[in-house]
Design a protein around this nucleic acid. Structure first.
Lengths: 149, 149
DNA sequence: CTGCTTGCAAACCATTTGCAAGGTC
DNA sequence: GACCTTGCAAATGGTTTGCAAGCAG
């Protein structure tokens, strides 16, 4: 259940921010690519198609803003740049990724075991856990086949 | 059971690399700070005390080398630079961190539940999982107290 | 109109690289 | 002596910032 332009407008208003065409386009791009992990560069080249005059700085500033408004989730796959995807429902966590060490494929997964784990660790460590980020590194099915030949 | 200088010499030899004073000092620094998460900058300023002539590039190159030799573990806490700590026993995973969103404290923890989780996910997803990195974000005990006042 | 936003260019900062001099084996 | 290493300085590449012009409310 991702955010809509209307919701963004409201969120912006609450903090005396304005809804500009640039912000709207960038939000739309994240909505249209909800399954991807876009970098600032990715967003820039996508926006450029509709708004050739946009500046890279605006892309960065807008992404930062959307990140602060919790519209986006920041993530890092160790490829030298931050990547973002649109947040889904605020009740769930979304940071579980399987990363293939051979082809770089990033696949998502959900698993309730993580919630259990979080509770156990929270109790053991006296840490009040709000969020987590989990990455598994290995080989995807396809690369397993390739590499075993 | 961390690595010793002797072990490093052997590892280097196997790949026709040489044991230089700089490499030895940097290894020693990681051994002496096994409980910390040092950045290249951190290492640089520590080395500088004993070897004022060392160059930043050497620090980076040595860290990369030690990382390739699996003497160091690379990690990222989203603070703009890579951090490293010396690897312990090669039979275990070591990437579990609790990060305090208020004071930035990074605390480590171990938990066997992660191994279970890894197996379950591996089966479910057809991914051959070799390693994982898990970060929990929240508030440490101390900050919980501070913030609730 | 007010003041948040934008595009541009320059600045930043962690990290990398080219190269000639230096050191290890 | 061969060749890996080093220190230096310059280059790189993602990201940020200063600023005057531009727009949303």
């Amino acid at each position: 259940m991702p955010i809509k332009v209307k919701d963004l407008k409201k969120k912006l208003h609450e903090r005396q921010y304005k809804l500009t065409p640039q912000r709207e386009i960038i939000l739309q791009i994240f909505i249209n690519n909800a399954d991807k992990h876009l970098s600032a560069e990715d967003v820039y080249s996508l926006v450029k198609r509709e708004s050739p005059d946009i500046g890279m700085a605006t892309v960065y500033r807008t992404i930062d803003l959307l990140n602060e408004l919790e519209v986006l989730q920041k993530m890092d796959f160790g490829d030298g740049c931050s990547r973002y995807e649109i947040s889904g429902d605020s009740t769930a966590h979304h940071h579980h990724h399987l990363i293939c060490l051979n082809c770089g494929l990033v696949r998502e997964f959900d698993d309730d075991l993580l919630e259990t784990l979080e509770n156990v660790i929270s109790r053991k460590s006296n840490f009040q856990i709000l969020d987590h980020q989990v990455k598994f590194y290995g080989y995807c099915q396809e690369c397993q086949n390739k590499l075993s030949r």
